Structure formats: C-alpha cells, structure tokens
Amino acid sequence: MRPTRLRDLVVAFLAAGIVAHLLVSLAYGSLPSFPGPAGATLGVLGLAEAVAGQILKARVERRPGSRPVDPLSAARAVLVAKASALGGALVAGLWAGLLVYVLPRAGSVTAAASDTTAALVGLVCALVLVGGALWLERSCRTPDDPGDERGVRDE
C-alpha cells in the first residue's frame, strides 16, 4: 500500500473548494446560518487519530513496555488514516469555499459575519483531521519500511 500523496489531498481540497464556492454563491440567500462549532467534531477526531498514532508508533517500534502490534490492526489503522485524510481534505475544501464567499461580505452582511466564524472553525478542525490522519498513517510504518528513507520521493 502506498502512502497518501500530498498532491491527491491538495487536488481534493481545491476541487471541493471550487464546488462549494459555486454552490454557495448560487444559493447563499436560501441557506440557513451555519452554527459556529459545526466543524469542531473533525478536530476532536483528528486529535484522537494523532494520539492513536503516537501509541501505535511505540508499539510498531517495539518500545519497552508496549505490546507488539497485530499486523491486521496496523492495516486497519492505515485504512482509517487514508480515508480520514481524504475526507478531511474534502471537508476542508468545502469550508474554504464557504469562507472565500462569506469573508468579503462579513462587514456588510450579519449572517456572513457569523458564517465566517463557522467556516474558520470548520476549516481549522478539518485540517487538524488531515494532520492527525497523516500522522497515524506514518506511525504505522515499520522501521525498515523502504518508503521511510529521507531521500525517497513519493510520486
């Protein structure tokens, strides 16, 4: 299984952002207001994945006091990490598309000001999810993993 490529995440982020911006610009007047903590759940999931990655890293490296990790558990963790990274990039793109639309209007439209806060919280929390997912995926690499060398590029 190949590591998640940053360019795939960037493409998903940009595509979702463009679609969200187009949809919001067409239907913003008929949309309900976005609650401020709407995207906070993604931040909690991202932190949980980062903590799980730290624990799993110790188990993969067989540090003293930690049990060896079951290969199937590591494979499941990588699957969750890859899905979370892509999902987080897509949702971050959606929040960014909303933010690009509402930020210039925040001074003149009251709803846009509150939606700006929601979009910022959502964007930051979605990026936390992407970071936690990438850390979890990286933590599952074995010390002798050939893709783990400094000089190897991920294509």
Rank of each mutant, 00 (worst) to 15 (best):
E155K: 10
A133S: 12
L47E: 04
S25R: 15
V102P: 00
A85M: 07
S66G: 00
P37E: 03
A111K: 14
A119Y: 00
G65H: 06
A81H: 11
S33A: 13
G88C: 06
A12T: 12
A74S: 15
D154K: 07
G97R: 01
A20P: 03
D8Y: 05
D70L: 08
G53Q: 01
V69Q: 06
L22H: 00
V19F: 09
R105F: 02
V128E: 00
L120P: 01
G36D: 14
R153E: 11
R7W: 09
F13C: 00
R138H: 15
L129I: 06
A58L: 10
G43N: 04
D148N: 14
V152S: 11
V80T: 10
T142M: 09
V128D: 00
S73G: 10
S73E: 14
R67D: 12
A83S: 15
E61K: 01
G46K: 04
A92M: 11
D154Y: 12
S33K: 05
G97F: 02
G131N: 05
G122T: 02
A83M: 14
P68D: 04
S108F: 08
D145Q: 10
R5M: 12
V19D: 04
S73D: 12
T142V: 08
V91A: 12
A92F: 12
P143Y: 04
A52T: 06
Q54S: 09
P64E: 03
V121P: 06
A48K: 07
L127D: 01
G131Y: 05
R63N: 02
A119Q: 02
R138Q: 15
R138W: 15
